[in-house]
């Protein structure tokens, strides 16, 4: 009986803390809603074909894996207090930002090189057709992710609850890139004249997205990451 009473006391304490701050519930609900919204872009197309489903799963897994990697890449700097060292070095803030973003982008590409073949194995996705197109799409979306992600992860460094706040801040802003990636991937796999025209559009859209956010990030990183 004592065992259960103690468990109840701990649960009661936790729930009371939560009732007063509402931190965990708010962030959890918000995160869940954002995931539902992102998934709806990936899966609400008319036909639940292999192309559409596999492409949605590809990008949702990339988004999750990417935010894990981002958090680690910046937490490491924090644990060793090396971010301060970097910021004190004569290097331009923009260069620091670009370096962080590039390393994250390369790591993510490595992850994608593992995930994409898996889609062929588990879902029968035609990943080997029009491979150069798929690679360009992967690269452009990964650049978008690492640019926006590095800015937010850098900004989050001094704050509490980083692990929770990063995806919350990141996913809504990245939605257009993920929409373009999901639709573009499906279009490349479906192929044909219409499919390739669509893929071409999404690739160009991603180029615009990348350049816009790169400029904004270089402008902002300077004033955002101050220690």
């Amino acid at each position: 009986m004592r065992f259960l009473r103690h468990a109840a006391a701990v649960a009661g304490k936790d729930l009371r803390v939560e009732l007063r701050t509402r931190e965990v519930v708010t962030t959890m609900v918000f995160f869940a809603v954002v995931i539902v919204v992102i998934s709806s872009f990936a899966f609400t197309d008319q036909i639940a074909s292999v192309e559409n489903t596999a492409s949605g799963i590809l990008w949702i897994s990339v988004a999750f894996a990417g935010s894990l990697g981002l958090a680690r890449a910046f937490d490491r700097e924090r644990e060793g207090s090396t971010m301060r060292g970097l910021l004190l070095s004569p290097a331009d803030r923009g260069a620091i930002f670009l370096g962080k973003a590039a390393s994250i982008a390369l790591t993510m590409l490595l992850v994608e090189a593992v995930v994409v073949p898996l889609l062929a194995v588990f879902f029968g996705a035609p990943v080997d057709v029009r491979l150069p197109w798929l690679v360009s799409l992967l690269v452009l979306t990964t650049i978008a992710f690492s640019i926006v992600g590095s800015v937010f992860a850098g900004m989050l460094l001094p704050t509490r609850a980083r692990a929770v706040l990063l995806p919350i801040a990141l996913y809504p802003v990245l939605t257009p890139a993920f929409l373009a990636a999901t639709k573009g991937t499906a279009a490349i796999w479906i192929g044909g004249k219409a499919g390739m025209a669509e893929a071409d559009f999404w690739l160009k859209f991603l180029v615009v997205y990348d350049s816009l956010f790169l400029v904004a990030s270089l402008w902002m990183f300077e004033s955002l990451v101050l220690e």
């Binding site: 701050t21 708010t26 962030t27 900004m155 704050t159 509490r160 609850a161 801040a169 904004a216 955002l224």
Partner: peptide, 27 residues
Amino acid sequence: AYGIVRRFGGPGSDRLAAGLAVFGSIN
């Protein structure tokens, strides 16, 4: 998300929130 960041982010969250608002508007 801006509100959540400001509410639960603690010190320094004002800058993250500002960045979020700027990126959000570009978006």
